[in-house]
């Protein structure tokens, strides 16, 4: 690992002003929460920052508060705390399950929610210092000629990463918002708008500017009559990212769907909302046939690589299963 300086900051403002200063000085700097993801990249020489700004030393940024209308979750809340929080479990079950399905117990004990949403891709070409890929300033996305079995089938090109977060699809399905602090103050935006497609900018995964950090997630409590489901497929039951993940929430009255959310992980460079399928479901009764059809609609336009054709059927089946479980 290249040597670097660690700075324990005491406030969000301090973090932001340091980021701004280093940016102006053309020094590389990054913030870390648990460090569970970022330190690995440093050890593997994929990133070599001059400064690490440690957010964990900011007091009180790890809250989970239930308020009228929803939950406020501080950037430093750990995945394990979200997984085990009784009210989150009761009212935001898909978030609790998604947090609990991420990584491994050790990583969930260290990893924060902001770090989980901001983690860099787990593409093997990106993670290896042997490949200078497109996303790292190189000329090619190696998945195109190489091995793309775990890569994107939707919304990809020129880079084929998949967004690695488990909590992101669940939070997008829940309609969460994300609070960002920067030099000019704070702003709250829908989480869905946080992520960036490679066709827009293939060197980043989110909209954060160099001097901005995430400070909070707000999750509205689903309406009465809503039921959700989070299902993740992977090769290994722990310590493994999603091959395909599906978050579904169905709000029904009687047996008729009033609104549905279908968001996929592991299939696209951002948490992928299947808007057409959601539209299709409105006003329908969910049975085998509608659930199946919704899955097919959700995967319309999928462009798999040579190695990941299997993901299409897998995602369709999972959506079907998720909707039947949410009905």
């Amino acid at each position: 690992m290249k040597s670097f300086e660690n700075i324990d900051v005491k406030s969000v403002r301090e973090a932001v002003s340091l980021l701004q200063k280093f940016h102006q000085q053309k020094k590389s700097a990054a913030v870390v929460g648990g460090g569970s993801e970022y330190l690995q990249l440093m050890k593997d020489h994929v990133v070599e920052p001059d400064y690490l700004i440690n957010l964990k030393s900011i007091p009180g940024l790890d809250y989970i508060k239930e308020e009228r209308g929803g939950f406020r979750i501080g950037a430093l809340a750990k995945l394990v705390e979200i997984e085990e929080h009784p009210a989150v479990r009761e009212k935001l079950l898909i978030l609790s399950s998604a947090a609990g399905e991420a990584a491994s117990p050790q990583i969930r004990n260290a990893g924060t929610i902001a770090g989980n949403l901001c983690q860099r891709p787990f593409c093997w070409y990106f993670r290896s210092s042997n490949f200078t890929c497109l996303r790292k300033g190189g000329q090619v996305c190696y998945t195109v000629t190489g091995d793309g079995r775990f890569h994107a089938i939707l919304g990809a090109g020129p880079s084929y990463i998949v967004h690695p977060s488990d909590t992101a699809p669940a939070l997008v399905a829940l309609g969460a918002q994300i609070k960002i602090a920067g030099p000019t103050g704070e702003k709250m935006i829908p989480l869905e708008k946080f992520f960036v497609l490679p066709s827009v900018d293939y060197k980043r995964e989110n909209i954060l500017n160099p001097a901005e950090i995430v400070t909070e997630i707000f999750v509205p409590t689903p309406k009465a009559g809503s039921k959700g489901f989070y299902h993740k497929v992977r090769e290994r039951l722990a310590w493994d990212h999603a091959i395909v993940a599906v978050a579904t929430i169905v709000e029904s009255s009687g047996s008729v769907v009033r609104a549905a959310r279908v968001v996929m992980g592991g299939v696209a460079p951002i948490p992928w909302r299947a808007a057409k399928a959601e539209e299709f479901l409105r006003g329908k009764r969910i049975d085998e046939a509608t659930a199946k059809q919704a899955g097919e609609i959700a995967l319309e336009g999928a462009k798999p690589l040579k190695d990941n054709v299997y993901k299409v059927k897998m995602a369709q089946d999972l959506i079907q299963r998720g909707l039947l479980a949410s009905a």
Partner: peptide
């Protein structure tokens, strides 16, 4: 796994070579 074009192994670690866990 070895990348066919560059001949570089792409998953030489526990995470990507997927040794089993207790589960």
């Amino acid at each position: 796994l070895i990348d066919k074009v560059t001949a570089i192994p792409i998953n030489p670690n526990y995470r990507d070579a997927k040794v089993p866990t207790h589960l």
